[in-house]
């Protein structure tokens, strides 16, 4: 499954460690939520980066005390139709100010990329190589966005109001809250 980051297909430096596997001393690891929550004190002492796979039916508020020690949060799309992780992503970014890597995993297809980016994801485990290769082109397809999200794109509303009143919020980045 190709990983897309910053618009390019890149090597995944995180190694997935399952619930019952030993955690290596070095190297970035990605662990399931239950494992992480049970052993978070130990993970806090690791030198190398830790990431967590967070299921889409568990409130991200539970992660908030640990966000500082996490380099990566991987959210899950069991099917593309299940959009719960979009809300989780926005909450992590916009409400809880998570600045680490936010990864979309599972049934991640080309036609979701833009929605994912706009919700705050910055890495993508694309299901198909062709989709991963088309990433840059697909997310550049639209130039107008009606709603402000935490991704920094100006909404149509702000663009109109600043056109009407030059100088007013001309360069404002719309970061929620």
């Amino acid at each position: 499954m190709p990983l897309v980051k910053s618009g390019h297909i890149v090597e995944d430096r995180f190694v997935r460690v399952l619930d019952d596997e030993p955690v290596p001393d070095t190297g970035s690891v990605l662990v399931p939520a239950t494992r992480f929550l049970a052993d978070h004190a130990e993970f806090a002492h690791r030198e190398a980066p830790t990431g967590v796979i967070w299921p889409n039916d568990r409130p991200v508020a539970e992660l908030v005390p640990h966000l500082d020690q996490l380099a990566l949060v991987a959210l899950v799309f069991p099917t593309f139709k299940d959009g719960r992780a979009y809300s989780q992503a926005r909450l992590l970014r916009e409400r809880h100010a998570f600045r680490g890597e936010l990864r979309a995993t599972g049934d991640v297809l080309r036609d979701q990329f833009l929605y994912l980016v706009r919700s705050g994801f910055d890495s993508f485990e694309a299901k198909k190589t062709a989709d991963a290769e088309a990433f840059a082109q697909v997310v550049a397809r639209y130039s107008v966005f009606y709603q402000p999200t935490g991704d920094g794109r100006l909404s149509a509303r702000r663009r109109r109001l600043s056109d009407a009143e030059p100088g007013r919020e001309k360069s404002a980045r719309e970061v929620a809250q």
Binding site: F80, D82, G83, Y86, Q112, L114, Y115, Y146, Q147, T149
Partner: peptide, 13 residues
């Protein structure tokens, strides 16, 4: 209408 057109969070309800 504008706010909910291609809303990234609410297109897969």
């Amino acid at each position: 209408r504008q706010h909910l057109t291609m809303h990234p969070e609410f297109s897969f309800l």
